[in-house]
Simulated assay, not measured.
Amino acid sequence: MLAAVLGPSGLFLMGTFYLLSGLFTPESVARKGARRFVRDRLVRPGIPFALSALLVWPPALWVAYRAAGHDVTPWWVFTHRDPLLDSGSLWFVEILLLFSVAYALFGRPRATPAVPTGGHLVAVTAGVVASTFVGRLWFPARSGQVGDLHVWWWPKLIAMFGVGIVGARSGLAERVPDRMWRGSRVVAALAVLSVPVVAVALGVSDLAGQAGPSLGGRRWQALLFAVVEAVLVVGGSVWLLGLAQRRLTRDGPPAVALSRGAFTAFFIQGPVLVVLAAAARPLPFPAEVKAFLVAAVAIAGSFGAGRLLTARTRVGRFL
């Protein structure tokens, strides 16, 4: 039930992060120059990723193993995790670092800025479908690569980063055109609604046990999953960007404080969730109740701690 409700958003929210990053990367490179930009990227995304992979996420997993009754050491957890250098939620930062450095070193702005249209988004979606299906012949979804690279997600992440790069030169960061926003909203809503319908039609009742054919290979299920994922990531990301521009514009001290500590909150959310989940295990409530309780406390705790860490400690330089 939770997977049907929350699962579709997980397929496109990471793409939204890359769209946002692409929107602001060209201006940053132009302002700082390629050398300073690369140096800054190595510090701000690079150091948090290294800290998460080496010092933060392995102990958090050790807590999870111990809470589940496994008598293991933190070193065992670090050396036996698949993939090696698993960084928890910070894996996307490592990949974004690679994309950003590649753009700074090899990206060249067009003389005449291109204006993204609905037709361009359809073409991007088709490209994501094809490249995702082909890529997962070698790197199935959920497969692990050394360094936690998530190669099986690269086609859609590259695509959305590229849409952001192109959109940055045509004002997409300020306003998604109304027609494009409405169209993306309809497409994303239909895709989200189609996921449980398709699952029921195919007789899928256990996502963990029956997802295998959809994760990769020369199977129609893998192609169908690539189509749904591509439609969601392109349509959902553009819709969410337009929604934020139209509805999430409230300013003031609370909004500034939350936004300033948002990256720190994302950095610490994994350990916070693991510790809270372990602490909630003895509570005599159903798992669904504990899930929402842990989520609510984790969100408040992560943002609160994120604000304090960025405002009152030196880690604000990196986070």
Score class of each variant (00 low, 15 high):
A111I: 08
V315S: 05
V72K: 02
F263K: 08
S143H: 12
R247A: 11
Q145M: 04
S259Q: 14
H80S: 13
D251G: 15
W153D: 12
V72H: 10
L2I: 13
P284T: 13
A30T: 05
V101T: 10
P74G: 05
A295T: 13
H70C: 06
T264G: 08
F161M: 04
V77C: 03
V297T: 01
G301Y: 00
R182N: 08
P271V: 07
A296W: 04
A189P: 02
F24L: 12
A123L: 13
S143D: 11
A53P: 02
W138V: 14
L283S: 11
F49K: 03
S194W: 06
T125H: 03
A265N: 11
L2E: 06
F99L: 15
F267G: 02
E229W: 00
P282T: 14
R142E: 15
D206K: 13
E174F: 10
L193Y: 09
V129L: 02
I95T: 13
A230R: 02
L85R: 03
F24T: 15
R218M: 15
G147N: 10
A4E: 14
G127M: 09
I268M: 01
A278S: 07
P286V: 02
R246N: 12
A188T: 03
L98M: 15
S259K: 07
V228L: 10
Q245R: 04
V56Y: 00
W62A: 07
T125S: 09
V134A: 10
R185M: 15
P58D: 04
A4R: 15
L248D: 07
L98A: 13
V204F: 07
V29Y: 00
L309A: 15
S9Q: 05
A255Q: 14
P74T: 02
F292V: 14
I47A: 07
V115D: 12
D251H: 04
G164A: 05
S184H: 04
F139N: 14
R260G: 06
L51Q: 12
W220R: 05
P286A: 08
R36C: 03
V198K: 12
V56G: 06
V231I: 15
F106V: 12
A126T: 07
A173L: 12
A222W: 01
R142G: 13
L308P: 00
Q269T: 09
I47T: 04
G22D: 08
L308M: 11
F99W: 10
V124D: 07
V163K: 03
V227W: 06
D86S: 09
A50M: 14
G209P: 02
V129T: 05
A298D: 01
R314C: 04
F106C: 09
S87K: 00
L276Q: 04
P282R: 13
Y103N: 09
L96P: 02
W62L: 06
P282V: 12
